[in-house]
Structures are given as structure tokens and as C-alpha cells.
Amino acid sequence: MKPEYSREEIERYLLGEGEGAEREAIGEALIVDSELHALVREVENDRIDALAQGQLPEAEARAWRGYLEQTGQSERLAVARALMAKTRPRRRGLWWLEAAAAVLLTAGAGWFWLGPKAKMQPVLEARQVSLTLPRGTTRGNDAALRLEIGSDVARVELRFEVAPEPASGYRVRVLSASEKVLLVREGRGWPESSLRVTVEARDLPDGLLRLELLALDSAGAAAPVGFYEVAVTKASKR
């Protein structure tokens, strides 16, 4: 008869717990029994996903981080975070809002939905430029966004187009092309369609910048929502 193992026993095995003989028995079983092997892989994936979503208590999270390091799989955590962000459920009851926005925009009535002030291109206002960062923009897109900052501009408004998220806060990071963090902004709550963050123009250097938008949960764990590359051109002062 095939030995049966519970998820808890499998977790203990993966975390390196248990006596020698007990570990050897499960080790042998998972080579011989392909169904048990698949179950171990599933338990491993599920724990990594829970860790990626910040769902594990601190001690357990530490143990699974240690596991990933010791088994040379640390990079799987970033992949799991991305996969979980991709499959994260939208807030119930608001799906229709997104659908309605899509219909309105497709029908060419986007101006009405977004309001008369919103435009897709950078807009020059009184000493402030605004850059709209569309949803779904990633490094994989061919065209980088462009931001021109005139010599009389003091502030830049970054307007992220977002969908409702079950988040209790947000974090925006601006990084140089060489990954140096130039500034970080955090705030509470999550807007339904547009997140606006204003930064000082002098804090944004010329050249290619990377902007990251992350959703924060109540425990402070961050999940990526948007990632943008922006080519900044600053006019020199006369």
C-alpha cells in the first residue's frame, strides 16, 4: 500500500524538519510515486504564492524565505508575486465600472467619462505639467512615454490610470535607468480610476526614468500594479 502524506507533513519535509528516517521515507516515496511528487510540487507552489501575497505569519514567512534561499529558488518569489498580482481578484461589485469605462472610451465619449480636464498627452498648466500613465504599460511596450519639462515648470503631476484594487495604500517609486531610487511617495487608500501624485520637477533628472506603482495591503506588503519607462527632457534655463 502506498504511504499517504498530509499537506502539513509535506510542508515539514520541505522546510527541512523531521527525523532522518522520516525524511528518508518521504524522500524515497516522492521519487517513486508520481502523484505524491505532484502533490509536493503543488504544496510548494501554494506556500510560495501565500508568501508572495503576504498571507503567512511572520515566523512561517521567514521559514519559507529561508527555504527558497537554501534550495536556490529565491527568484521564484518575484515570479509568484507577479503571477499573484496578475490573478488578484478585483473588488466585487465594481467590475461593471471598468466595463462601462471601456464601452464609453470605445464609443469615443472618453472626454465625458474622464472629465474635460483629462488629456492623454502631457498638459502644460500653470508651472505644472501632467503626465498620464495608461494602464497596462510595461517595459515590454515598444514606445517609452515622453515627458518634456519646460524651464518654468516647478511641479510634475503623475496621473496613473488604475482599476479598483483591494489595497489599503499605494507606493510610487521613481528610479533612474541604473535602478537608483530617486524618490518614493506613499499614501493611504486606493482610487477607483486615477491616482495623482505630484513631485517637484527638480527631483526628476533628464534621461530615461522608471516609474513603479505598487499596491500596499494592510500589512504593508507591496504588490506591483504598473511599471513605466519615461523619457524625460528638461529645457535648460535661459
Binding site: A78, V79, A82, V181, F227
Partner: peptide, 18 residues
């Protein structure tokens, strides 16, 4: 690598792979 930078890159790669 910093976590956020790694996450952003992983997200972009995941989109392409999907």
C-alpha cells in the same frame, strides 16, 4: 536586487510569457 525593481521586471516578463 532590490525587491521592487525585481518585481517590476518580473511583471513585465510575465506579461510577455503569458
Amino acid at each position: 536586487e532590490t525587491e521592487a525593481a525585481e518585481d517590476a521586471r518580473a511583471m513585465a516578463c510575465l506579461e510577455r510569457c503569458l
